[in-house]
């Protein structure tokens, strides 16, 4: 048995499928790949797959990963990506296959890119800077134990901002993201709506999954 880490991106049309749907896509592609994937040994055997961290519906992921197992220790990793890609939707692409170095539950943060766009040339950058300059920015955080008020300032105030043109802004932010929970980058959009009355088109991309020391998981 050999543990194998599959690196993939989920972009374009595939952004709009849920995590559960993604697992089904992967299972079908792995089945068709002809690779020596290991099946769970229960009453209904299924391909063993563990995803690092589910992506929210609508969020792109560029350096996502999942673990599978090969039944043969010596199974080569060369050519594995191509074999899986041949059966995946075009917007889910495996771009790397490695032997895992870190455990998946060591993921503590993620780096997100948020691309904001508004019609007209609303001064997005000023508004966002103004928003966090004013003090606590509380939004409702939807959690397992119900909704609660949550101040997003500590998480978003230091984010990187780059103006891409009139009304278009690229933000980069590192947020907690782990098995025990995290901060959803979409909360920024909620804050912009409730505090500034702004509803820009916000495209969120998870760019990287990070360990406690901010290095990328490998």
């Amino acid at each position: 048995m050999k543990n194998v880490r599959i690196w993939f991106k989920k972009v374009g049309a595939a952004r709009y499928i849920s995590h559960l749907d993604l697992t089904h896509c992967m299972a079908r592609a792995l089945k068709l790949s002809g690779l020596p994937v290991w099946y769970t040994q229960g009453f209904n055997p299924r391909i063993y797959m563990t995803f690092a961290m589910p992506l929210s519906l609508g969020t792109s992921g560029l350096r996502e990963c999942m673990d599978i197992r090969f039944t043969e220790d010596g199974a080569p990793l060369e050519g594995v990506a191509e074999k899986i890609n041949a059966h995946l939707p075009k917007d889910v692409v495996v771009w790397g296959v490695t032997e895992p170095a870190n455990k998946l539950d060591a993921i503590a943060f993620a780096r997100y890119g948020i691309r904001l766009e508004t019609e007209g040339s609303a001064l997005l950058k000023d508004k966002i800077q103004g928003l966090f300059a004013r003090g606590p920015v509380t939004v409702m955080k939807h959690g397992k134990k119900g909704d609660k008020e949550f101040d997003i300032t500590p998480y978003f105030s230091g984010m990187g901002m780059e103006e891409l043109g009139a009304g278009c802004l690229a933000l980069t932010v590192r947020l907690p993201c782990s098995v025990s929970g995290g901060v959803n980058p979409g909360l920024l959009l909620e804050a912009l709506k409730s505090y500034e009355g702004l509803e820009p088109c916000g495209e969120i991309t998870r760019e990287m999954l990070l360990l406690e020391d901010f290095s990328e998981i490998s």
Partner: peptide, 18 residues
């Protein structure tokens, strides 16, 4: 750790390749 050092197969994923 440099991202580019990661041993991956020949395919690579450019961060800005959106």
């Amino acid at each position: 750790m440099d991202l580019q050092d990661k041993k991956t197969s020949e395919l690579s994923c450019d961060l800005h390749d959106n």
